[in-house]
Design a protein around this nucleic acid. Sequence first.
DNA 1: CTGTAATAAATGTATATACATTAAATACAA
DNA 2: TTGTATTTAATGTATATACATTTATTACAG
Lengths: 149, 149
Amino acid sequence: MKIEEEIRQKPFKDVYTKAMVNLLYTHSYLVSRQSRLFKPYGLSPEQYNVLRILRGKHPDPTTVSSIQDRMLNKMSNASRLVEKLKQKGMVERKECAEDRRQVDITITDKGLETLSRLENEVKLFNKDSIQLSEEEANQLNGLLDKLRG
Amino acid sequence: MKIEEEIRQKPFKDVYTKAMVNLLYTHSYLVSRQSRLFKPYGLSPEQYNVLRILRGKHPDPTTVSSIQDRMLNKMSNASRLVEKLKQKGMVERKECAEDRRQVDITITDKGLETLSRLENEVKLFNKDSIQLSEEEANQLNGLLDKLRG
DNA sequence: CTGTAATAAATGTATATACATTAAATACAA
DNA sequence: TTGTATTTAATGTATATACATTTATTACAG
C-alpha cells in the first residue's frame, strides 16, 4: 500500500520528505515483526544482532568496542546488551590480557545453539517480510547504499 | 559505502537478509541525524511527527487513537507522547463531548510556531540526508511501498 | 620518568518502543 | 433494560536509543 494511505496523509510535496517518512515507516513495520519473531527465544532484535557479530569471530573473542563498531545502531550500547546476554548465559566476558581496559566477549554453546535454531526461521522471515523479487531487492540495496552518501 | 563495509561483515549469502540489515542500518543512520536536528527545539523525532499530524487537522482537534493510527510507529504510545508535548505547551487536551472515552488534542500556537520555524530546515535536512536524484528517490519509494506487501 | 591526553568500558538519565493490563465509557444482543 | 463485549485512553514494565559523564588503563610528549 502507498505510504500516504497507510498513514492517512495528504500527498507529500517533495520526494525526499516522502522517502524519509517511507523509510521510518517501513523500519517500524519490519522491527515490529522482528520483535514477535525473536520473542519466543527470549531475545530482542538487537541482542540477536550482537550474537551474530560474536558468531562471526568465534572461537575468537570480540571486544566490546569492536561489537559497538559493527552494530547496526552505532548509538546503541554494546556494554548493556552484552550484560543482558550474559544473564541469559549466551556470552562470556573476560578481561583482555594485552589491554586491561578492554573486555573480551565470546559466544557460548548456548548462544550458538540458539542462533542455529533461529537460522532457517530468520531466513524465511526476511524473505517473507520483503515482498520483492531478487532483482528489486538488489536495486533497493543499491539505493540504500547510495542514499547514505 | 556498501553495507558490508560499514558494519565490517562478510558478504551476505542472500539478498533479502542483506536488504533487511541495510534497512535497519540506514534507519539508524537517519534517526541519529534527526535527533541532532530536533534537539535544539526540545523535540524528539516522534514528538515532531505527532505535531505534524495535529497540524494536518488544525484547527480541528484529533483524538489520541487517530494520532496513533497515523503515527509512523504503530506500536508507539500516543498517550505518553501527547503528555510530553502538553508539558511543553505545544498541545491542548480536552474531553470529547460526543464520546467521553475519547480525548481531543489540538496543537497550540506555540506548537504551530515551532513547526513553522523548523519547516525549511527539515526540508533541507531531508534532501541532504538522502543522497539520491529525484528519480532514484521515486524508485526507492516505489520499492518500499511494494516491500510491505 | 612524569603528567597530560586519549581510549575502553561502564553508568546515569531522558526518551521511545513493545506489549500487557486496567479503568471508564459505549455498543449491542438477549 | 440488563449484562456482556468492545473501544478508548492511561498506566506498568522491560528493553533499547541518545548522549553525557565517570573510572580505569594506556599512550605519548616533554
